[in-house]
């Protein structure tokens, strides 16, 4: 087997095991930590596909920031009120994820995908040029969507106390 293919199988295997662990783990914090592992490993898969910018952004956004917020939210809930994870809904979950898997499989078989290690490395300059010329409109639309989400988050965060225009300042 080619070395890059071997690397891919190792990384993909760890990703899948970690992802399975997220579903199986009974402790919420373990599930979150395994989710982080799975997300970082996804970044390594991007790396093996020579998409180094995407890999770094994956590690920065999902490995660093999003997962920290996730852990933060978990820790702010006291352990007594945290529900014990159970696996009662596993049949429904299996059907739903199976359906999603088939959908993705069909979609991915319809297109030809690059193999690990074999593709051309796309430089950041090419990426930037493509983003700001060919894909300028989708890029701007994405930024508008993000802005709307940001404002929505602010609105939700501020409306905790009814009647007041601004949520009270956290006491120092």
């Amino acid at each position: 087997m080619e070395l890059s293919a071997l690397a891919f199988y190792v990384v993909a295997g760890v990703t899948l095991v970690a992802a399975l662990g997220v579903v199986v783990a009974r402790s919420v914090v373990y599930a979150a930590l395994l989710l982080i592992l799975s997300l970082v490993m996804t970044g390594l898969i991007y790396l093996l596909l020579l998409a180094d910018f995407l890999a770094l952004i994956q590690i920065l956004v999902y490995g660093g920031t999003v997962s920290i917020l996730l852990l933060f939210a978990l820790m702010l809930t006291p352990p007594e009120t945290r529900p014990e994870l159970n696996h009662r809904g596993w049949a429904l979950g299996a059907v739903a994820s199976g359906a999603l898997f088939v959908l993705l499989l069909v979609a991915s078989l319809a297109d030809k995908w690059p193999a690990a290690g074999g593709t051309r490395h796309i430089s950041l300059v090419d990426l930037g040029r493509a983003l700001f010329s060919t894909w300028a409109v989708p890029f701007e639309v994405a930024s508008v969507v993000l802005l709307v989400a940001l404002l929505g988050a602010l609105t939700i965060a501020r409306s905790t106390t009814p009647g007041s225009k601004i949520a009270p300042r956290a006491s120092a």
Binding site: I36, F53, L56, I59, G63, G64, I68
Partner: peptide, 15 residues
């Protein structure tokens, strides 16, 4: 991508 790298990798420290 040095500049992106030096932002992305230390972010893992928080975890």
């Amino acid at each position: 991508l040095g500049l992106v790298y030096m932002v992305a990798i230390p972010a893992m420290q928080g975890i």
